[in-house]
Nucleic acid binder design. Structure first.
Lengths: 117, 117
DNA sequence: TTGTATTATGTAGTTATACGACATATAGCC
DNA sequence: GGCTATATGTCGTATAACTACATAATACAA
């Protein structure tokens, strides 16, 4: 399906992109819900501005890492609520990024850098 | 000396900046040596272009994360070889970044994302 | 019923940083 | 003499994050 090159071409992820994909990994969500989830996951350290969020979602759609998952659904009321979910490629990229991050931490440990708060 | 705010203001580091600081953590080095060390540490995955490297060094000097450590030394031959070392702040920022990265990996594990190659 | 917070999506302009291409220069080896 | 490695640097471009601004529905309380 997707080659290693497809996956590596999308790395490294930025912190924002990482959290968005991680948020969508457990369940599909709409933009605002992603914002809140990222805040929670990062213990309030990362607060996505809307400019960052919607810009990132647009980019991720173009790159094929996420998909709209609400096509044809009833838009109950008012403004459209758009749901997104990870694609197969998106999931693989996320996995590869976790692997890359783990390697970064390991590289530091090999140089005897102990983490601090 | 340095407040938590000083340190957090410098996070997150980009991958390039992270590797440069990590390379300088064990010993002072000149630019080209950093390039080679980063290649080695990353198993050839990360190859710094000179534009990236010298641009990053200039920025890190301005931010006070690194220092020139060869002031007054004999420049044996030809073109000047410039040595850099971490400042106290640079070291603390590196430690804090390792901590941040570890949290990112942990966040993924909490969502049951297992890393893959 | 009015106002305020929360939910929800989006654009415009600015800034920071990584990258590739180009440029220069010495040292050592074949 | 020519090639490779060592070594430092600039310029232009692309990407992505951020702030500020803009719009709109829903829910709740005064």
């Amino acid at each position: 399906m997707h080659t290693i090159e497809d996956i590596q071409a999308n790395l490294p992820l930025t912190e924002v992109t990482y959290f968005i994909l991680l948020s969508l990994a457990s369940a599909q969500k709409h933009g605002y819900a992603i914002m809140k989830d990222v805040e929670a996951m990062s213990h309030k350290r990362v607060s996505l501005s809307t400019g960052t969020l919607y810009g990132a979602l647009k980019r991720l759609l173009e790159q094929g890492l996420i998909l709209r998952s609400d096509e044809g659904e009833t838009n109950h009321s008012g403004r459209t609520r758009k749901n997104y979910r990870l694609t197969e490629l998106g999931y693989r990229v996320l996995q590869a990024e976790v692997h890359r991050l783990d390697n970064l931490v390991t590289a530091a440990q090999l140089r005897s850098i102990h983490e601090s708060a």
